[in-house]
């Protein structure tokens, strides 16, 4: 339990992933820090299940979920996984097509994903299918704005949408 394993170099992780996911329509590359899997939303569940359950992969820990507005390419969602068992890290990138920001939720596999998914949902407007409670987490419950969309202004009087009387909200 307490043995210290050296972290696995990125290229080894990439090689491992290529062996596992060669058949699926996913692209495997690497970022400055981690191996990366570009994965379409419809294969996402299968990829994550494989990542979690396979013996050589065993990614038991979900570090982080990032929702990104890629403008005309659609909304992207990046998952950072880590394997305590094998000391390797991987990032899974899911790019949803414009107008259809649906991604299957992984809260049943990783309980830690709950709040991360809620945050990504409210910040950029991703929709996680199967999430038990996709309410706003950091913003007001009845606010339906997605502040991390690139189109959202930074320094303007914001009108809080979704509230009945459309009085101007806070001015920055």
């Amino acid at each position: 339990m307490s043995k210290t394993l050296a972290p696995k170099p990125i290229d080894q992780v990439v090689k491992l992933l290529e062996q596992r996911f060669g058949k699926l329509p996913v692209a495997i590359n690497q970022t400055a820090t981690d191996a990366n899997i570009d994965c379409p939303p419809e294969h996402f569940r299968a990829v994550v299940e494989e990542l979690k359950n396979h013996r050589d992969l065993a990614f038991d820990f979900l570090r982080n979920i990032v929702g990104i507005d890629m403008l005309e390419e659609g909304l992207a969602c990046k998952y950072q996984f880590f394997s305590y068992k094998n000391r390797q890290a991987v990032q899974v990138t899911v790019l949803t097509p414009p107008g259809n920001p649906h991604i299957p939720s992984i809260t049943d596999l990783y309980p830690a994903a709950n709040w991360h998914e809620r945050e990504a949902a409210e910040m950029v407007g991703l929709i996680f299918d199967g999430h038990p409670n996709l309410k706003n987490l950091l913003l007001d419950e009845d606010v339906r704005i997605h502040p991390l969309l690139k189109a959202h202004p930074l320094q303007k009087a914001e009108i809080l949408q979704g509230i009945e009387d459309t009085t101007p909200g806070f001015t920055f």
Binding site: T4, F61, Y84, Y110, A112
Partner: peptide
């Protein structure tokens, strides 16, 4: 337990308190 801690996403002293020796300063 360490398994619970990992599943819930606990890190840092909360994870190490379970007896799981993991510290990014040493392990990465």
């Amino acid at each position: 337990t360490p398994e619970q801690a990992i599943a819930w996403g606990l890190t840092g002293p909360c994870l190490r308190a379970t007896g799981y020796k993991f510290d990014l300063r040493k392990d990465e």
